[in-house]
Amino acid sequence: MSAITTIDYLLPGEIVDNLKSKDRHTIIGPGLRRNEENPNKSLIVTQAGWLRFRSPNTYWIDSRRNRYIPKKGDLVIGIVTKKSGDIVRVDIGSAETASLSVFSFEGATKKMRPDLNIGDIVYAKLLTAHKDMEPELVCIDQYFRAGRLGILSNDGFLVCLNLNLAETLLNAENPLLRTLGKKFPYEIVIGVNGRAWIKANQAKDVLTICKTFEVAKNESEKSIIEACRQTK
């Protein structure tokens, strides 16, 4: 993967042009929207933050926001809040609750419904996320397989992280999760909406992980790597 370059610090409403594209396609991540006045050539910024670019054609805004804004393709952790017929409402931390069909689980049919109850935690993918519509979740991929998505069991703990920490932890180069894994066995699910579900053999281990995240929140990436190197 090519390196990420930082272009500039931008404020909402500023216009980004001179975009690079590959085969006339450009990929835009969070914080950017099409500019209505010149829809085919430029973008408009919706969040204050650093404009980042990865060749050949990806742009996004890196900000320090705390509120999660749904984006198509995000893998999130949600809590079931309401059941109504074939659709359940799921709280994913965004302004609006998302909808999740009971048929969008692996092997689900009209007769074979998944066992979904209010208060259950699901790890799901955002199928649609549009500013004028409610977000829609699914628990299967394009081949109708669950993979790692689905209902998370009741013997785990749900904690809230901030968005930046969730993104840092999901970077495979970050050694924090591996270093913890050497100390004790555990399973973790981190959603890009800043929530984490932790399961370990002992409650002590879960607390250790929570405390580690609490500390890591205020540390730079460099100091996290250094701390992990020392505990080896």
């Binding site: 835009i28 991540g29 990865r54 996004w60 393709g73 995000d74 955002l126 890009v192």
Partner: peptide, 8 residues
């Protein structure tokens, strides 16, 4: 549109 996971 792409998710932040695709970008980063």
């Amino acid at each position: 549109q792409a998710s932040i996971s695709n970008c980063k």
